[in-house]
Design a protein around this nucleic acid. Structure first.
Lengths: 96, 96
DNA sequence: ACCATAGGCAAGCGAACGCTTGCATGACAA
DNA sequence: TTGTCATGCAAGCGTTCGCTTGCCTATGGT
């Protein structure tokens, strides 16, 4: 899972899936090009999605000939738990 | 920085520095062996520390012929900020 | 002065990574 | 059925990674 985060294109895929959930492979390719300035081929993105799925960061559901992908940030908690990241000081109790 | 987290030995180093701050290179080597079951040479650990330092995850201070290393988890916030990890539900307001 | 200790620098090597290429599969439309 | 579209599988290739090897610097103890 840490290894899955090590590649910038994979991180861009996570960004893209966060902004717009349930994208197909071709949707992702287009948006990676237009919004992130990346030019990755279908096979490259497909392999990246495989890695992300193995890492548990992306869940996919098949419908007909389409495969939709969704972000799952749950595994990232392993990072914050492991090295005790304090939750961002956001004054959760509303004291002035 | 994501790349720095991709290696299990480097993550063990971060674990070790979290548990005991201000370790030297040789201290780290010994504790990696005894407590994490790893057998890394001095040069390997030294290179790992270099990567971690470049990533901003480890800060070092030189004193005489010793160099002490400290963990800095600040860069890890980039992860939680980027993918909006909600702070762990820990009831920060103390409601029953 | 001498030597051990703590650490640094750099070249080389095998393995893993990311990507391409080519072909195959399954679903839908005409 | 035939063709097209969305996706999958696998081999090959160049690059990067992690590690080793060998030598070097500098600090501190005797």
């Amino acid at each position: 899972m840490f290894r899955a985060l090590a590649d910038p294109t994979r991180r861009a895929i996570l960004d893209e899936l966060q902004e717009r959930s349930g994208q197909t492979l071709f949707e992702l390719i287009n948006r990676l090009v237009t919004r992130h300035g990346l030019s990755s081929t279908r096979q490259a993105v497909s392999q990246h999605l495989g890695v992300l799925e193995d890492a548990g960061l992306v869940r996919s559901r098949r419908e007909g000939r389409y495969k939709f992908h969704d972000l799952d940030t749950a595994p990232l908690r392993a990072i914050t738990d492991r090295w005790r990241i304090d939750p961002q000081e956001e004054d959760p109790c509303g004291s002035p």
